[in-house]
C-alpha cells in the first residue's frame, strides 16, 4: 500500500513539474502539450490506440518468439563445436552493434513495405542480445553442477534442458528483458521511418500519423502508452517470473 502510494505521489509530482515547465516557459501545445490535453487525446483516440497496441504487441510477440528460438539454436550450435563458437562470436561482434533500423532499407528491398519487413527488423534487433546473454549464461554455469549432470549420465539436450537452462536462468531472463526492449524499439522505429502498409500498423504508425498532422498531444499520448506497456510488462511479467525463479533460489541478489 505504501509503495503504491509513493508511486502515485511520484507520478503526480512529475505531472506538476511538467505543467510548471510549460507555464513558466510559455510553450504552446504544439511544442509541449499540457498533461490534460495529452490525456484528452488518449481518451479520444482510445479505440484506435487499442487496436494499434494490439497490433504492436502481436508483431513484437511473434518477432521475439522467433528471435528466442533462433538464439537457442545458435547457442546450442555454439556449444557443439569450437568452430561454431568462434563463428558465432565473430558474427555477434559484427552484427550486434548494428542498429536494427539500419537494415530497414535492405528489409524493404527483400520483403517490400509491410509487416514482413518490420518483423524482420524486430527479429534482427532482438536476436543478437539474446544470443549474447544465452551464450554467456551457458558459459557461466558452475562446473560442478555440469559434472553432477554428466555423472548422472545426462548429456546433450537432456543436460541442456534439465541443468543448463535452469542454471543459467538469471542470464536467460536478462536476455529476454533486453530482447523485449529491443523488439519494441525496433517496431516503433521501423514504423516511424516508413509508416505502415494498408492502414495496418502499430503504435509507431500512430506516432508517425500524429506527428505528420502536427497533433503533438497525440504523439505524447502514443509515447505514454508505450511507456505504460513497458512498466506493466516489467512489473507483471518479468518481476513475477523473477520472484518465482531466480529470487526464490537466491541465484541473484534481491
Amino acid at each position: 500500500m505504501r509503495r503504491l502510494f509513493s508511486k502515485v505521489f511520484f507520478i503526480l509530482t512529475v505531472a506538476c513539474i511538467w505543467e510548471a515547465v510549460k507555464a513558466i516557459g510559455g510553450y504552446s501545445d504544439l511544442l509541449l502539450p499540457g498533461v490534460m490535453s495529452i490525456l484528452r487525446s488518449l481518451w479520444l483516440e482510445r479505440i484506435q490506440i487499442f487496436h494499434m497496441t494490439l497490433f504492436s504487441l502481436q508483431i513484437i510477440g511473434i518477432g521475439l518468439l522467433v528471435a528466442i528460438v533462433l538464439a537457442i539454436c545458435a547457442t546450442i550450435l555454439a556449444f557443439s563445436g569450437r568452430i561454431f563458437s568462434e563463428i558465432i562470436t565473430d558474427v555477434l561482434a559484427i552484427l550486434h552493434p548494428l542498429p536494427g533500423i539500419a537494415i530497414l532499407p535492405i528489409a524493404i528491398l527483400w520483403f517490400g513495405i509491410g509487416t514482413k519487413s518490420i518483423l524482420f527488423v524486430i527479429i534482427f534487433s532482438a536476436v543478437w542480445p539474446l544470443i549474447n546473454h544465452f551464450y554467456t549464461g551457458f558459459r557461466s554455469i558452475p562446473a560442478n553442477q555440469l559434472e553432477v549432470g554428466r555423472n548422472l549420465g545426462l548429456s546433450g539436450l537432456k543436460l541442456g534442458r534439465d541443468i543448463m537452462l535452469p542454471a543459467s536462468f538469471p542470464h536467460i531472463l536478462g536476455g529476454i528483458r533486453t530482447g523485449w526492449a529491443r523488439a519494441w524499439q525496433a517496431s516503433v522505429a521501423a514504423e516511424l521511418v516508413f509508416g505502415a502498409a494498408g492502414g495496418n500498423g502499430g503504435l509507431g504508425w500512430f506516432l508517425y500519423k500524429k506527428r505528420f498532422m502536427m497533433e503533438t498531444p497525440g504523439v505524447f499520448a502514443g509515447m505514454l502508452v508505450i511507456v505504460l506497456i513497458g512498466i506493466a510488462v516489467e512489473y507483471i511479467v518479468f518481476t513475477w517470473v523473477e520472484i518465482n525463479t531466480v529470487r526464490k533460489w537466491k541465484t541473484i541478489i534481491n
Partner: peptide, 13 residues
C-alpha cells in the same frame, strides 16, 4: 559418484 569440494554442487533451483 563424485562429491566435490565446492559448495555449489547442489542445484540451487
Amino acid at each position: 559418484f563424485m562429491i566435490f569440494q565446492g559448495l555449489d554442487q547442489l542445484f540451487p533451483w
